[in-house]
Amino acid sequence: MKPDNDPDLRVSDLIDFNGGGWNVNLVKQVFDEEEWGSILNIPLSRFWPRDSQFWWPARYGIFMVRSCYWLARLGHLRTWALQFGARETELWRAVWRLEGPPKLNHFIWRACKGSLAVKERLASRHAALSSQCPVCNKAEESIIHALFECTYAQQLWRASEWGSLLTDDPSTSFADRFEWFNSRRDGEDVQRFCALAWAAWEYAEKVFKPSHSWNLMASCWSPPVEGWVKINFDAHISAVVEVGLGVVCRDHHGHIIALGVKRVEASWEPSLAEAMGARYAMELAARLGYMRLVLEGTL
């Protein structure tokens, strides 16, 4: 908090109750950039519950002497790491220390979190009919397969200086592989490694799957029953600390009857951004008076 601000300022003073979110200008005025960025990433409840005390070192927020003892014994940072996971904190730091365009950092973070739109993930969410890789048609398209094991990705890595090194790396997840490589190479090598993974993804997306997402939804989308409204929603995370939310409402004929878009200044993880997209869809439905509705992710 900046030293020249009111020390008696309350959290409620920073909330725009009419707009249903943070008072962005005031938050930026009161806090330094690192602090206001973290604050704006916290989603606010629309129910405006009464404030209550929460003891963060305990799992359920209830004060316990034991948690107080460990806080005093280990210190603030170590206790936080034990409670919320040191691995993810270190992983986050490693990803955002990469020197490159913000889109590269964002791509690597999505890959580490398992949120890339591979067929394996889409099929598990019933957004694709098959989990088979559409590029090689030889295996299930997981993130590891798409970035390293697919036919054309293998050619890329064999031509790189790490072709032999990657035969011994973990294949359980991209996060494990990234951490493994990061522990063995310096920053410049890690940056090139990430750039090659990004190149493998972009090449497959643009050359082999130029319009797969739209064709997929066109083949899978089904209208609601008569008298109901189907609301599709989606979220887009940009590289400029902003999340875009989009909503499309259709009737049983498939005709678009309402649209909604909203931009939020935040850098949410993909899962949280999707959840906020669902909430925005429900708010729009309530505002328009739609009582019978089907909520479905992806526009």
Rank of each mutant, 00 (worst) to 15 (best):
R125I: 15
L147D: 06
A117G: 13
Q154P: 05
Q154T: 11
V95R: 02
E120M: 14
E120G: 10
K113E: 13
C133E: 03
L104F: 07
S124V: 08
A139D: 14
T151F: 14
E149K: 14
K138N: 08
K119E: 11
R125T: 11
F148P: 02
K113C: 10
H126R: 12
F148Y: 15
V95L: 06
I144W: 03
V118E: 00
R110G: 04
W109Y: 03
S124G: 07
F148E: 00
S131V: 11
I143W: 00
A127G: 10
W157H: 05
A139K: 11
S115L: 09
A146L: 10
W96M: 06
Y152C: 07
K103G: 04
S115K: 11
A123G: 04
L129H: 08
A159N: 12
H106N: 14
G114N: 08
W109K: 04
N137H: 09
W162P: 01
S142G: 09
I144V: 12
A111H: 00
Q132K: 12
R110Y: 05
S142T: 15
K119D: 10
C150Q: 05
L129I: 09
G100L: 11
P101Y: 02
C136T: 09
E161Q: 15
W109T: 05
C136V: 15
K138M: 07
A146E: 05
F148W: 04
V95F: 03
W109S: 01
A127Q: 10
A117P: 08
L98A: 01
L147R: 01
C150F: 11
F148D: 01
V118F: 03
E149Q: 12
L156D: 05
S142N: 02
A139Y: 14
N137K: 15
R121D: 15
G114I: 08
E120P: 02
A159K: 12
E99C: 10
G114F: 15
L156A: 15
Q132P: 01
L116F: 04
S124R: 13
A128F: 08
E149I: 10
W96Q: 06
C112D: 04
E140K: 11
S130N: 06
P101V: 13
E141S: 04
A117I: 08
E141N: 01
A159F: 11
E99Q: 15
K138E: 11
P101I: 09
H126M: 13
P134F: 07
A146Q: 01
W109L: 08
K119A: 10
G114S: 13
W162E: 02
N105R: 12
K119R: 14
R97S: 11
N105L: 13
Q154S: 10
E141M: 04
L122V: 11
C150M: 13
G100K: 05
V95H: 02
A123S: 11
G100F: 07
I144S: 05
I108V: 12
C136Q: 08
I144L: 12
V118L: 04
C136L: 07
W109G: 01
H126P: 03
A159Q: 10
R158F: 14
A146K: 04
W157L: 07
F107A: 02
T151G: 10
L129G: 14
C150R: 00
L129V: 13
C112F: 05
A153Y: 01
P101L: 15
E140G: 06
E161V: 15
G114L: 12
I108Q: 02
A159T: 08
A111Q: 01
